[in-house]
Computed example of a mutant assay.
Amino acid sequence: MNVLDANVLASLAGEWVGEEAIATTRWGQGGSAVGRVHARFDLGGKVLLLDYREERDGKASLQAHAVFAMGQEPGEYAMYWFDSYGFTPSQPATGHWDGTRLVFLRTSVRGQTRHIYEWVADGLYRLVLESSFDGGVNWERVMEGEYRRVGDAA
């Protein structure tokens, strides 16, 4: 998909469902899951609100709420991530569009997490989450999912 810089966040808006592969980490057991995403614009189109629900065996196992905003410079973005594991951001994750991927880096006392959104085809994107506990020297894959659009944002 040829996502133009101005439309990067707009291309995430909508209803999405995806199959996920979760790695065993210090936060829980690995396995497969289904991810459901609802993303819509708010505040006059200034921010994208994303609600995420991970389901394992038909039951909610992780929920998250994210707020995405365009930065001051073209290709720069910010993300605030809140989840049911108790993560509360003290600062936004910085992000950038590199022409094919939207990449965010979250930093907290728990380490760093990299969110990589990559468009595979029209109506299909891949999300990879990687964590580092040594300042970004080594990265561990936490989750990979591929999401297909099942509806437009309401």
Rank of each mutant, 00 (worst) to 15 (best):
G31A: 01
A66R: 08
A78D: 10
Q63G: 12
W97F: 14
N2S: 13
Y52W: 14
R110W: 12
R40I: 09
G86I: 07
S131C: 12
R36A: 04
D98N: 15
R141Y: 02
R106V: 06
V37C: 03
D152E: 14
E20L: 07
D57R: 12
P89Q: 04
S90Q: 15
M143P: 00
R114L: 09
S11V: 03
S32K: 10
A60P: 15
A64N: 04
F133Q: 14
A13T: 01
R36W: 01
S84Q: 07
N138I: 06
P89K: 03
L48W: 07
D134V: 02
S11Y: 02
A13C: 01
D42S: 13
V120Y: 01
R53L: 15
Y85P: 00
R141H: 03
V3K: 04
Y117N: 06
V128G: 07
D122G: 13
H65C: 08
R106G: 15
V37T: 02
Y77P: 08
R106T: 11
A13I: 05
I116C: 13
L127V: 08
Y125L: 05
A66H: 10
D83Y: 03
S108P: 03
G35P: 01
N7A: 15
A21P: 00
L124S: 09
K59N: 11
Y125N: 05
Y147Q: 11
